[in-house]
């Protein structure tokens, strides 16, 4: 029983690592990256991706900021530490919550969309058609999406930082009875620039993960319509796992 279960976990881990390896292989041929990417495509992808995800990112982070503040201020006020609440919320937002949650939400929306789009191109032989027409699918499909994700995710995280902190501010002042001045002052005292920029660095990495995993899963979608569905689910699961794992190591590196 237990052995079988461990074996299952082990197999999952091996599959995940194998996927990582293949994704790195996706990047091994430098040729497609040398050519100047089509800026039109990049901009198109950025608009598509940003506009698509902004509302759901804002909603997710707003409520996360609010519920965090409910819990934290409740506990902190008990110990007379209400003057720390603002800072704690802002730091948690900037360093962890905004980048990770934005990454997860975007993985669910954009990562899935990328895999579905490229996967259906794969199973209808459109990828082969590109190659026969002497176009590298990596240069034409992957590079613009990679650039777009790496640029848009930090932008989304900036919005998320702001809206999350605003959510915290509203709950702190209107519900928990912490003064507006106390909240803002505590943000000023506690936070440093790195709390935000570190989160943005993470966002760039998460953007790359989402785009690469999304494209990889799409380009390798098994034949048939159910193949695309499977690839899409697989893409979201793999991106989210990779985001959480890499987030841990990024935190170790960025916030020593």
């Amino acid at each position: 029983m237990l052995v079988a279960y461990l074996e299952k976990i082990g197999r999952g881990m091996i599959a995940l690592l194998e996927n990582c390896g293949r994704i790195v292989l996706l990047l091994s041929d430098p040729e497609p990256f040398k050519r100047r990417p089509n800026m039109n495509h990049v901009l198109h992808q950025m608009a598509h991706l940003g506009v698509d995800s902004l509302p759901i990112v804002l909603l997710t982070i707003l409520f996360t900021g609010m519920v965090m503040t409910v819990q934290i201020s409740h506990e902190f006020i008990k110990y007379g530490a209400q003057s720390s609440v603002g800072g704690v919320i802002a730091i948690a937002m900037g360093r962890e919550l905004a980048p990770v949650l934005t990454g997860v939400v975007v993985a669910g929306r954009v990562g899935a969309a990328i895999t579905a789009e490229i996967g259906s191109m794969k199973v209808t032989e459109q990828i082969d058609a590109l190659r026969v027409m002497a176009i590298s699918p990596i240069a034409y499909l992957v590079v613009p999406r990679l650039i777009a994700c790496m640029m848009m995710l930090p932008l989304l995280v900036v919005f998320a930082d702001v809206i999350g902190t605003i959510g915290g501010y509203l709950v702190a002042t209107l519900y928990s009875g912490i003064g507006s001045f106390t909240f803002l002052q505590s943000i000023k005292v506690f936070t440093v620039v790195n709390d935000v920029t570190g989160g943005l660095v993470k966002a760039v990495v998460f953007g790359a993960i989402i785009a690469l995993v999304g494209c990889y899963k799409g380009l390798n979608a098994p034949a048939g319509a159910e193949g695309v569905g499977k690839a899409t689910t697989g893409s979201v699961v793999a991106s989210i796992i990779l985001i959480f794992v890499s987030n841990y190591f990024l935190s170790l590196m960025l916030y020593r």
Partner: peptide
């Protein structure tokens, strides 16, 4: 090349 299912860019 003309593909079996046309493979037009949809």
């Amino acid at each position: 090349m003309v593909f079996q299912y046309s493979a037009l860019f949809d």
